[in-house]
Design a binder for these strands. Sequence first.
DNA 1: TCGTGTAAAATGTCTAGACAAAATATCCAT
DNA 2: ATGGATATTTTGTCTAGACATTTTACACGA
Lengths: 234, 234
Amino acid sequence: MSSLDSRIRSDLESKIRSGEWPPGSRIPTELELVAQYGCARMTVHKAITALVAAGLIERRKKAGSFVARPHVQTAVIEIPDIAAVISERGETYRFDLLRRARAPAAILDEASNLAGFDLGDEVLVLDGLHVAAGRPFCLEHRLIDLAAAPQAVDTDFTATAPGSWLLGHIPWSQARHRITACSAGAGGELLQIARSAACLQVERWTWRAGQPVTFVRQLFPGDRYDLVAEFTPN
Amino acid sequence: MSSLDSRIRSDLESKIRSGEWPPGSRIPTELELVAQYGCARMTVHKAITALVAAGLIERRKKAGSFVARPHVQTAVIEIPDIAAVISERGETYRFDLLRRARAPAAILDEASNLAGFDLGDEVLVLDGLHVAAGRPFCLEHRLIDLAAAPQAVDTDFTATAPGSWLLGHIPWSQARHRITACSAGAGGELLQIARSAACLQVERWTWRAGQPVTFVRQLFPGDRYDLVAEFTPN
DNA sequence: TCGTGTAAAATGTCTAGACAAAATATCCAT
DNA sequence: ATGGATATTTTGTCTAGACATTTTACACGA
């Protein structure tokens, strides 16, 4: 924290964030900063490297280092474990398993068919309802590839939600989310809302080392859940 | 790319991502890796540092370096310029300005009142409709703090959407997004959908150096837009 | 005037070592 | 056995320099 390189780094960062060094402007050369701080070049270099990794600075050989211009708007959303979210709110949490079936993947007519998401031979289908403080909170439809997670067969998902179990047992390497709005439709009865009520639908495809692990579609009543994303440019 | 440290880094990373080194397991000490690669410790250290920054590895003094357990599910969503999105699809794009007004911020009864988002004295209110291929695509309600962006007064927003203009003219340092599902409500007429139709609502608060810059609420018909988020754990 | 080649400036990578800091392990005295 | 001092292991930071690489600027020649 109080190392010299982190001090240099935060000095530079505050000059940038404050606008004192506007986007596109050139910052002092490494040798100038070496003279200014009286340290070795590696130390300055390390500080700048961290800011480059954070996207705040761009370096060009011979030309120097420049404050990066903010480019694409990206935001980091956190899609946490539902059980954890609800516990944090101080509400009781329960998962009701509605359906459990083994099925050959070929039969599934799912919208889970995404390019590059080719499920193995057999799939575990799990439908359930997350309940918070006695009220339905999220309707979940999940497929687990049994080739990727064979232990799932011997797991009792009436006790733990499959999402929580997977988090702890199957590491993954890649996921893709799709967030849409739709009407509750047939899920409305289970969620105890009108069929026409607006819902937030989160679909997630998860891979491990290029192999599909699980697909999940979660339906949240629009007034009971929202995603919040923090965002810092560059 | 082909530097030694990046080679070491990708070696380690693939051992982790493949599962050969499972979460929680200890990786070789820096000195062992030095012996293995025949390089200086700084080089190994740099490679590991990058993986620590990426959240793939955790280091503990005396104990060693360990493969991190995946923790919170975070995803990076891109919230791009609407005009750019539509052009990429190859559709025509138009922005219709529906309302333009200057108002004292005090009057606003907005839900824009977020903790830490205290607008200045005067605000520019801009309501408009993004139109793609002749069909309404997004209904937008925006506030611009005139203290933060005085040039907005002299800008003609019938030509450019305020979002695009702000992107190019006012740098910002922080933003907060809220993504919810709701019914179209009164906006349904303008979007040419039923009042009860599900919509994706994106609200965004933007600051610059701690000062509010703009608030925007965008309403997308649920069937015409969805957010996609890519995600890699750790 | 217009290229073109060369020098210079800046970052990129790496070495071999030093000392610091933290956490664990060990040993000794009680 | 137990508590505390001490040693050891491992990462954390930093130095002072070397050479590579890339791009720009400039001088020079056609």
